[in-house]
Amino acid sequence: MKKILSLLAVAAFMQTAVFAQTNWKVDKAHSRVTFTITHLAVSDVDGSFKDFDATIVADKADFSDAKVNFSANTASVNTDNEKRDGHLKSADFFDVEKYPTLTFVSTGIKTTGAGKYQLTGNLTLHGVTKPVVFDLWHRGTITNPVSKAGFKVTGTIKRSDFAFGSKFSSPVLSDEVTLTANGEFAKAN
């Protein structure tokens, strides 16, 4: 009888652990992925990706164990300037024919404050994969009428780490590129 109770307890625990995992999918209508780079050391140029996808998987309600996956279609880059966008899509920068997607896959998360985290992972851009660190802010979770969670991710990468735009020196385009993502996620299960 003890063995049966023990087996039932283990089965119940495993079932709870499986169902505790929650999947979240980005609500693209309420999300935006942007970047900023400095041009000629005197002005900032902003851009965004119009076609992207992201998911979060977490067991904990505070997302302190979140696993994040993100991808963007590089051909969807948009700076509100058709000529510049065409140049960004060329082999000088994104080379969209050869590298149609940029991706981020998280490898860890560390709590830095209430709702604040340090998100580590691998960013693949222009065919190069490098470890990166981003700041993640869990802005909150609501249920009305559906479950939604809000996040802001910020960080800076060096384009030289990814052999991105290597024809253009730092005085022309800053090596540092600031990335910002504001995301609203809907509970998928």
Rank of each mutant, 00 (worst) to 15 (best):
Q118W: 03
L119K: 04
L119Y: 08
T120H: 03
G121M: 08
G121R: 03
G121K: 05
N122D: 15
N122W: 10
N122A: 09
N122H: 12
L123T: 04
T124W: 00
T124V: 07
T124D: 01
L125D: 00
L125I: 12
L125G: 01
H126K: 15
H126S: 11
H126E: 10
G127D: 12
V128A: 07
V128W: 02
T129M: 05
T129L: 05
K130D: 05
K130S: 06
K130A: 06
K130W: 09
P131L: 11
V132H: 01
V132C: 03
V133C: 07
F134N: 00
F134A: 01
F134P: 00
D135A: 15
L136G: 02
L136A: 10
W137P: 04
W137E: 15
W137R: 15
H138S: 09
H138K: 12
H138L: 09
R139S: 15
R139F: 07
R139M: 13
R139I: 14
G140N: 10
T141I: 04
I142G: 06
I142Y: 07
I142T: 11
I142L: 14
T143I: 09
T143G: 13
N144E: 10
N144C: 08
N144K: 10
N144F: 11
N144M: 14
P145L: 13
P145A: 11
V146Q: 10
V146K: 11
V146I: 13
V146N: 11
V146M: 09
S147R: 03
K148F: 09
A149R: 05
A149F: 06
A149W: 02
G150Y: 02
F151P: 01
F151C: 08
F151V: 14
F151Y: 14
K152P: 02
K152L: 14
K152R: 14
K152C: 09
K152T: 15
K152S: 14
K152V: 15
V153Q: 00
V153E: 00
V153M: 04
T154M: 07
T154H: 03
T154K: 06
G155F: 03
G155K: 03
G155M: 04
T156K: 07
T156E: 10
I157Y: 02
I157K: 01
I157F: 05
I157N: 02
I157M: 05
K158M: 13
K158N: 13
R159C: 03
R159D: 02
R159N: 05
S160P: 05
S160E: 11
D161T: 04
D161S: 09
F162C: 06
F162W: 08
F162D: 01
F162N: 01
F162L: 08
A163M: 14
A163N: 15
A163D: 15
A163Y: 05
F164H: 00
F164W: 04
G165M: 05
G165A: 10
G165S: 08
G165V: 06
S166N: 13
S166D: 15
S166E: 13
K167T: 12
